[in-house]
Structure formats: structure tokens, C-alpha cells
């Protein structure tokens, strides 16, 4: 038997206007429920827990995770996004952007909550400021065009310091 291989051909399919219209609706109706389920499972939550965090009932979450339900509203999606503490970007975009997003969908399935994202950002700020301080006074020539940005980061960390301490005290 012979085999022939091929690459992704979404763009050529999108050339057909009717397919494009159907794809826009179809991918939203299927991928949003799929992503809600993935994000909930990544957090180790039950549907009841997500419902409580979102101010919805477990039944609504169950339907929101069902790609065959077909009647998911933006209002519900936004409330679930709030429950998961993630952003939901509903914006008009060219099809090329949709294709890029769709192409890397499986790699982008993990979405950190705001707290996780904040911790990641602060970790980066502290590391960058630490690197800047290490170079200051030793070899100023290493502080190049990025130096200005790094100084701003350093200032930000100084400003964030007391706030972070306050957070830690509140958490304790």
C-alpha cells in the first residue's frame, strides 16, 4: 500500500466563505467548553467548586463543558473566567490570527490564574533587579540599552517590596 502525507490545510479551507463562517462558530462552541474543562481539571476542581467560584450552579458548568450543548452565552463564559481568575479575550481579529491561535492551541491550554501569573511576574522582576544590582559598580559597561528598563524594574521591585511584605503578613 502507498501512503501520501500532507500538512495542516486549515487556511485553504478558510478560503471558502461558508466554511469560514461555520468554522468561526464551530471552533468557539467546541473549544471554549473544552478549555473550561481543561482549566478546571488543571486546578483539581470539581464542577461544584468551579460553580461556587463563578457564582453559577453545577448544572450550568456541566452544560458549559459540553461541546454539544450549543447555547453557551458570553455572560456565562465571563463568569466562569472570573471563577477561574483568568482573562477572557473576546475581540475581533483577522482570520490569520485565529489560524495562528488555533495552530498552537494544544500548547496554550495551560492558563495560569492571576495569582500564579503575578507570582511569575514578580519572580522575574526580582531576578532581573538582582542581576542589575550585581552588575552595578562592577562593570558599568555591561549596563547597555536595557539598563534603563532594568533600572525601572529595580525601582518597581523597591516599590513592590512593602506591598509584598504586607501580602505575606496578611497571608500569615
Amino acid at each position: 500500500m502507498n501512503t501520501k502525507s500532507s500538512n495542516s490545510h486549515l487556511w485553504s479551507k478558510l478560503d471558502d466563505r461558508d466554511y469560514r463562517k461555520a468554522f468561526l462558530i464551530g471552533q468557539f462552541k467546541r473549544m471554549v467548553p473544552f478549555q473550561i474543562q481543561i482549566l478546571r481539571k488543571q486546578r483539581g476542581w470539581s464542577q461544584e467548586q468551579l460553580a461556587e467560584a463563578s457564582g453559577l450552579t453545577q448544572g450550568v458548568i456541566s452544560r458549559a463543558e459540553d461541546p454539544d450543548y450549543g447555547n453557551l452565552t458570553i455572560n456565562t463564559v465571563l463568569r466562569i473566567a472570573n471563577g477561574l481568575d483568568v482573562a477572557f479575550i473576546g475581540k475581533f481579529a483577522p482570520y490569520g490570527e485565529l489560524e495562528d491561535w488555533f495552530g498552537g492551541l494544544s500548547e496554550k491550554m495551560y492558563v495560569p490564574s492571576f495569582d500564579e501569573e503575578n507570582a511569575i511576574r514578580q519572580g522575574k522582576l526580582i531576578r532581573k533587579a538582582g542581576a542589575l544590582r550585581a552588575t552595578e559598580g562592577n562593570n558599568p559597561s555591561q549596563i547597555d540599552v536595557n539598563g534603563k528598563i532594568d533600572r525601572n524594574i529595580s525601582d518597581s521591585v523597591d516599590r513592590l517590596g512593602p506591598a509584598l511584605q504586607g501580602d505575606r503578613q496578611r497571608a500569615a
Binding site: 471558502d16 462558530i25 464551530g26
Partner: peptide, 18 residues
């Protein structure tokens, strides 16, 4: 199939592939 049905099938195949 209608275009909407083709899309559902294409998305299903993609979902199963991954």
C-alpha cells in the same frame, strides 16, 4: 455534508488527534 457539519467533523478529528 453542510459546511457547519464539515467543521464539526474537522474539529472532532483534530481534537482526537491531540
Amino acid at each position: 455534508l453542510g459546511r457547519d457539519e464539515q467543521v464539526i467533523f474537522d474539529l472532532l478529528v483534530r481534537q482526537l488527534a491531540e
